[in-house]
Design a protein around this nucleic acid. Sequence first.
DNA 1: GTAACTGCAAAATATTTGCATCCTT
DNA 2: AAGGATGCAAATATTTTGCAGTTAC
Lengths: 132, 132
Amino acid sequence: MEKKKRNTKTKQLVMSAFSKANAALCHEDIERQFAGQLDRVTIYRILQGFCDDGVLHKISSEGGKTYYALCHHCTHEQHNDEHLHFHCLACNRIYCLEVPAITVPLPPEYKVVAVSCIVSGYCIECSKTTNH
Amino acid sequence: MEKKKRNTKTKQLVMSAFSKANAALCHEDIERQFAGQLDRVTIYRILQGFCDDGVLHKISSEGGKTYYALCHHCTHEQHNDEHLHFHCLACNRIYCLEVPAITVPLPPEYKVVAVSCIVSGYCIECSKTTNH
DNA sequence: GTAACTGCAAAATATTTGCATCCTT
DNA sequence: AAGGATGCAAATATTTTGCAGTTAC
């Protein structure tokens, strides 16, 4: 039997950060944003809990850091993580790309379960304002 | 000016592990393989050094662990990390795929610098022997 | 001989666990 | 009231830094 989850003020705070951010956030981001307000350990647990609920999904950045992003297309049963992520090297934001999932041309003997993909470069806004 | 690197016995040991493995290895893998022989800190430094030299490249697995793999197509100047990696969920090996780099269909305003991609599933060997 | 490399100690970070208390339902 | 959630302390794990002794060149 699964634990019944509760809708606490603390969770709402964390969720609000994601709603506003419109980008993936890491533990450190949350901790900084709610410094003095939220305990470090609680944040770990809430982030993990949201992942278990299918509300957030984990993204391991190229640098090895773990980020979390809202799941817009995921359900509790099925994580739809096939979508790509973009990491802007200028503004350093990581967010989900709304492009169709890529298909990798592999020999048919392979059984593909998931594809995790991060494109890095310069996002639309940063391409305009910087000279990359 | 760049530091002159030396070809030490310790580095040769670590390199031999990669040559034999034919797969990506993490710090823990190396540490286990040479337990009592090599210092943990030395391994960290050698792995980082090999990356700086362009001999190894880093792979951040979906689980957030950092793996290292031999660069067969990379030079010191240019890391060719665009190639994909495969993570077998049965034998747990991570290795480079020899398939052409994927192209992600993004709006032209994006400037793409690199693509990091891990396909997970069941490799050819494990697809045969297990019933996935 | 010189400078890079190594190993040990220790510091700095990051993550997890236990438990008493608090708060949602 | 019951049980999940939180905060604090502490344990554990991971990575980095400093430094003295060692070794490749």
